[in-house]
C-alpha cells in the first residue's frame, strides 16, 4: 500500500513537472522579439511560466481531489481526522518554496545583469557590460559622456553584454559606440533628438545591431517609454533624467507606448520605432539631417 502510494505520487509529480515544462516551452504569450533584451527576457518568462504552471496545476489537482474524495455525503455526520499538524511536512513545504524562490531570484538576477541592469549609471553606464563581454582590457567605447556630468537617476545603462547573443553576425558591433538619442516626453507626445545629426523627429529611428542610448527627460508630468517588442520600459521623469540603452535586432516598425498615466490623452500617447538595416538608417539620416552649410 505504502509503495503503491509512493509510486503514484512519483508518477504524478513527474507528469506534473513534464506538463509544466512542456507548457512553458511551447506556449508563447509574448510579442515578437526585436531587441537584445528580448531573448533573455523570453527565457526568463519560459522558466517562470513552467514553474508557475507546475505550482498552479499541482494545487488545482490536490484541491479538486480533496473536494471530491473527502466530500461529505448526505446523512454522514462523522467528523474528519483530528490531525492538527505535521512538523516534517510543514518543514518540507517551507523549504520547497524557499528553494524555488532562491533559484528564481538568482536566475533573474543573472538575466537582469545580462540585460545591463546592474551597470552603474553614473558613468553613462557604458563600461560594465563591455568588460563582461571581452574579459580583456577592451577599449572603452567612446560613449556619449552624459552631458555636463549631470546625475542619471535610473534606467538601464549598458547594452553591450548581450550582443553576442543576436546570433546573426552583428555582434561585431560591440566596438561601435552607441548612438545617442535625446528623448523628451510631454503631454502627449515623444520627441526624439539626434545630437550627432541634429535631427528632431516624432518617430524613433534606429539601426539594427547598433547600441542606442536614450537619454530621457519629461517636460511636464511623468511618462514612460515602452516598446513591448524590446521588452523594455523606463519612466521618463521631470527633473530627473533617466537612461535606457538598447540594441534592436529585427528590422521593422514597432509601437512606442506611454505607460504612465499622464492625463486625458494618455491612451493616445504613442508613436513608432522604426528599426532599419544600417544602410537604410544612414539614408534616413542623410535625408532628414538639416542642411548644414559646410
Amino acid at each position: 500500500m505504502q509503495i503503491r502510494t509512493a509510486i503514484t505520487a512519483a508518477l504524478a509529480t513527474t507528469a506534473l513537472v513534464g506538463t509544466g515544462l512542456l507548457v512553458g516551452s511551447r506556449v508563447s504569450l509574448l510579442p515578437v522579439a526585436a531587441s537584445t533584451n528580448a531573448p533573455p527576457y523570453d527565457s526568463l518568462f519560459q522558466v517562470l511560466f513552467s514553474i508557475g504552471t507546475i505550482l498552479f496545476l499541482g494545487i488545482l489537482i490536490v484541491l479538486l481531489y480533496s473536494l471530491i474524495r473527502f466530500r461529505r455525503r448526505p446523512g454522514d455526520v462523522a467528523e474528519g481526522l483530528p490531525i492538527e499538524g505535521n512538523l516534517p511536512l510543514e518543514i518540507v513545504w517551507t523549504a520547497i518554496p524557499a528553494v524555488v524562490i532562491l533559484f528564481v531570484g538568482i536566475y533573474s538576477y543573472d538575466i537582469y545583469d545580462r540585460m545591463g541592469g546592474m551597470a552603474s549609471l553614473d558613468h553613462g553606464g557604458m563600461h560594465h557590460g563591455a568588460m563582461d563581454l571581452s574579459g580583456m582590457d577592451q577599449v572603452q567605447p567612446a560613449s556619449t559622456p552624459p552631458s555636463s556630468g549631470e546625475r542619471i537617476w535610473g534606467g538601464i545603462g549598458s547594452t553591450q553584454a548581450y550582443l553576442d547573443q543576436t546570433g546573426d553576425g552583428r555582434a561585431v558591433a560591440t566596438a561601435v559606440p552607441p548612438l545617442p538619442v535625446e528623448v523628451t516626453a510631454m503631454q502627449f507626445a515623444f520627441i526624439f533628438h539626434y545630437p550627432d545629426s541634429a535631427i528632431t523627429s516624432g518617430e524613433l529611428h534606429v539601426p539594427v545591431g547598433q547600441p542606442v542610448q536614450l537619454r530621457m527627460q519629461a517636460r511636464d508630468v511623468i511618462h514612460a517609454f515602452w516598446v513591448p517588442e524590446f521588452r523594455l520600459k523606463q519612466d521618463v521623469i521631470p527633473g530627473q533624467p533617466t537612461v535606457l540603452s538598447l540594441t534592436a535586432t529585427r528590422p521593422g516598425t514597432y509601437p512606442v507606448i506611454c505607460a504612465e498615466l499622464c492625463g486625458p490623452y494618455h491612451g493616445g500617447m504613442r508613436t513608432s520605432v522604426v528599426v532599419h538595416e544600417p544602410e537604410d538608417f544612414l539614408a534616413w539620416v542623410t535625408q532628414n539631417a538639416p542642411q548644414v552649410s559646410a
Partner: peptide, 11 residues
C-alpha cells in the same frame, strides 16, 4: 523579478 517587471509594469 525586476527584469520581468520592466516589461509588464503599468500594463
Amino acid at each position: 523579478q525586476v527584469p520581468f517587471d520592466i516589461h509588464v509594469h503599468d500594463t
